[in-house]
Simulated assay, not measured.
Amino acid sequence: MTLLSLKAVRAGYGFGDIVHGVDLDVAVGEVVALIGPNGAGKSTLLRAIAGLAVVSGGRVRFDGIDLTSRDPQTRARAGMALLPQERNVFRTLTVSDNLDASAWGVSDRSDRRGEVLQLLPPVGDLLSKRAGRLSGGQRQIVALAMALMARPRLLLVDEPTAGLAPRLVGEMLDLLRGLAARGYGVLIVEQNARAALLRADRALVLVDGRVVRSGPAADLGREPDFGALFFGEAA
C-alpha cells in the first residue's frame, strides 16, 4: 500500500526551486533511501514533504489525500513526522519531558510512552537525564522516540547517523529498518550511502535537485562505479 506519493514536485524557499520535478513513493513497511552529494536538495525535499519548504509545483499525496498546499500541522495530524538532523531535542529538558512535549495530539500520553519504550528500550534508561547532556547516539534515539510519540505512520529522517561513531551507524539504521518491519513507512536522507543501501528496500540518487537514478537499493549498491553513480555521473 502506497503511503506517500510525490509527482513532479518542485520545491524551495521562495527564492527559486532547489528540488526539480521529483517523483517518489514510499509504501507501508518500506525503507526508501535518498542519497546524493551535499547540496543536492535532499533535506529540502524532506522539508517540502513535511510542509516546511515551499512546493511550487507538482503534488504531495499522503494516504491518497492531496496535502500539497496544507500546513505542517495538518500533515503531522495525517501521520507524518520529520526528524531533523540538528536541534531535534529540547536540550534543557529531561528526556521524559521531551517525550511529553512531543506527544502532539495524543490524549493517552502515558500509554503511548509505554508503547514507544517497548519499541526503543534504551530510552527508558535515559528518562531522568537532560537531553543536552546525552551523547550523539543517545540524542538521536531520543529524537526518534519523540517522533514516535505522535503516532506517525511515515518517518522523514534527515541524516540520523551524522556525527555518530562508526559502530553506532549500523545500529541506528537497523532501528529504522525494524520500525519499517512494524508497518511504518521510512524515508531517510543519509550520507552513509552504502550503510543505508544495506537496510533500504529502494533508493533514489538526487543530484542538483533532480533524481538521476532510482531502483532497488541492492541493485544500486552493486553498481560497479558507485562513486560516479553517487554524483550522478554514471551512464
Rank of each mutant, 00 (worst) to 15 (best):
R182F: 04
L154S: 10
L175A: 14
L176D: 07
G178C: 09
D174G: 12
G137A: 06
P160I: 03
A143L: 11
A162N: 02
L173N: 04
L173K: 03
M172R: 00
G183H: 12
P152N: 10
P160Y: 04
G178R: 14
G137E: 07
L156I: 08
M149T: 08
A165L: 12
L168W: 02
G185T: 08
V142E: 01
E171N: 01
A165W: 02
Q140K: 15
R151K: 15
M146I: 03
A162F: 11
P166R: 11
A147R: 14
R167Y: 08
L155G: 06
T161D: 03
A165H: 12
I141M: 15
A165D: 15
R182G: 06
E159Y: 13
L179I: 10
T161N: 04
P152I: 02
G170Y: 00
V157I: 15
L187Q: 13
P166S: 10
R153Y: 03
R182Y: 05
L179C: 05
P152M: 06
G183L: 09
L154W: 04
L164P: 00
A165K: 01
P152L: 02
L173Q: 04
A145W: 03
G178N: 15
R182I: 05
Q138M: 02
G137W: 01
A143Q: 00
L164V: 02
P152H: 08
I141K: 04
R139V: 07
V169M: 09
Q140A: 09
L179F: 07
P152Q: 11
R177N: 13
L154D: 09
P160M: 10
L176P: 11
A165I: 07
L144Y: 09
L179Y: 09
E159V: 10
I141H: 03
L179S: 06
Q140S: 07
G170I: 08
G163K: 08
L155V: 08
V142A: 07
L144E: 11
G170W: 00
A143V: 06
V169E: 05
G136V: 08
L148N: 12
G163N: 04
A147F: 10
L168Q: 14
P166D: 12
T161P: 01
D158M: 11
G178M: 09
L175T: 15
Q140C: 01
L164G: 00
G136Y: 13
A180H: 13
P160G: 03
L144P: 11
D158S: 14
R153P: 00
L144H: 11
A147H: 07
T161W: 06
T161A: 15
R177C: 03
Q138H: 05
A180T: 10
